[in-house]
Design a protein around this nucleic acid. Structure first.
Lengths: 156, 156
DNA sequence: CGCATCTCAGGAATACTGAGATCA
DNA sequence: CTGATCTCAGTAGTCCTGAGATGC
């Protein structure tokens, strides 16, 4: 449960308004809240697990490579995390008979239950994260953050 | 030079608009651009170093604990990073005669030169980061991100 | 052959914890 | 003794690289 974001006290002038700094500080804060949320229910699941499971539920059974693309997680970590989730019985993996390189990943019933529990946590954390903003500002923020991501991957 | 932010293709509906997700994706993107900027000039300095040095220049000679608070870096990492910077002659540390627990850290001339070079990079990266937004939107974004951080450290 | 998939080993940067030594 | 400071060792979670094995 991290939280080293200073209360915005006497942050150096050069840093204060830099988008990279503000994004970084907000990421840390957001992560702290997220991390607190996940640990207080202590099933040992983490953001990576949530991303995978919710992507899985949304997309239906898919291969790991595709799952990684959907959830923004590297192929290597996908393999690791799925092995964990499989061990816990939250997902299952079977070789695709039509393409035996591929593992078709499916969320299990237990997995869906866990996901529902995580969803509730996630929802509560969102409220905490945007708590300082008005409803209108929250919409603006979401729009702006989307726009930053939407125009080509790097903005070059 | 990371960059695994998907082009916002078919991100799961549940994730797409979550503030925590958007902040996380933007952090990754912002970091990728920052990291590229730092490595292309390859003096081996990283964001942590920049934060420390710019905080140091802004605040003048201070102790490490204070420096950590200003730059949002943990005491432990401050000690590590400053040892590196000192080895390179970019900062100097002397024991405070009035309080011998404390190391007074000062940026050196070479340090200021390096910092100026980093500042130029930082400035360029900021442009890249906010490139997708209009000028007005950039101001909105900065305001909103500030506000998220300003109302108490966690928003509780 | 090229190319995609999965897996494994491991590295890098950030954030954090705990403990010890020092000293006001 | 309390509490602040610095240092060190070590951990966790995220992001990423490289290489190998397999199969299209």
């Amino acid at each position: 449960m991290p939280l080293q974001v200073p209360g915005d006290a006497k942050i150096p002038a050069r840093l204060r308004d830099l988008p990279t700094w503000l994004i970084s500080r907000n990421y840390t804060r957001s992560n702290a809240l997220l991390s607190d949320g996940f640990t207080t229910t202590g099933n040992g699941l983490r953001p990576y697990h949530y991303r995978l499971m919710t992507s899985l539920k949304d997309a239906g059974p898919v291969g790991q490579a595709e799952l990684g693309r959907l959830s923004g997680i590297d192929r290597s970590d996908v393999a690791n995390m799925l092995a964990e989730l499989e061990r816990r019985g939250l997902v299952s993996r079977v070789t695709d008979p039509d393409n035996r390189r591929r593992n078709i990943v499916t969320i299990t019933g237990t997995g869906e239950e866990q996901l529902a529990a995580l969803d509730a946590i996630i929802e509560e954390v969102q409220q905490q994260v945007v708590a300082p903003l008005t409803v209108r500002e929250r919409q603006q923020l979401v729009r702006l953050l989307h726009k930053l991501l939407s125009e080509g991957p790097t903005g070059d």
